[in-house]
Design a protein around this nucleic acid. Sequence first.
DNA 1: CAAAAACATAACTCACCAGTTATATATTGG
DNA 2: CCAATATATAACTGGTGAGTTATGTTTTTG
Lengths: 107, 107
Amino acid sequence: MQATHDDIFKTLGDPTRRAIFERLARDGEQTVRALTDQSGVSQPAVSKHLGVLKLAGLVRDRPEGRLVYYSAEPQGLAPLIDWMSFYGAFWRDRFDRLENLLDRMDQ
Amino acid sequence: MQATHDDIFKTLGDPTRRAIFERLARDGEQTVRALTDQSGVSQPAVSKHLGVLKLAGLVRDRPEGRLVYYSAEPQGLAPLIDWMSFYGAFWRDRFDRLENLLDRMDQ
DNA sequence: CAAAAACATAACTCACCAGTTATATATTGG
DNA sequence: CCAATATATAACTGGTGAGTTATGTTTTTG
């Protein structure tokens, strides 16, 4: 059930899909129609992207009558955060310190 | 020249390619051969992945005779970090705490 | 209640890209 | 200097997945 960073990377790798997620994260809950109107693709395409985002744990849906409201799932990015913590910050941080050390040795 | 988070996501979206990057980030500089031997794909495939990673600013190469050493590029993940800072705001606290932990572990 | 609107799913197409093998180029070692 | 090794590139193939249109289901509206 818990998505892996592999799922997250694949899911966010598509620009159209990531744009949908970004919109939800920025502007909050939206219907499929609202998302479709500014997506540049058809409504079925948007529905499919939302399905993928949901499988990856990045969005949740709240049906209300014939409308379905989607919103960003905050915890969805956790696996990516974890990955970044290791391969991003962790490693960059060490490199920065090394660079600083080398800079100081140069002087 | 500066890669966008779009490039980064697309580049790291492929598991094989991301595994190569992870290996470089973890274990440091490697030749194409070394990377190939544990990648599960052919040498040309690895070379192609390295080319994509290099275009995305995630790795650098250092030719030495007939060997080419590749290493992770320190600043390569910066666009992704920026993106996360915005869309992963919810988790930034946790992110910071982990960074601090790693800092303390270093000393 | 009929028409329209919202969404999802099915069925299909098409382009892209990750993989392959083959090969060219360059460098090292015996 | 010849054989072997390292890498990159070219040319091709196949699978995947993002897009489409068509349609079914449900719900709202007039």
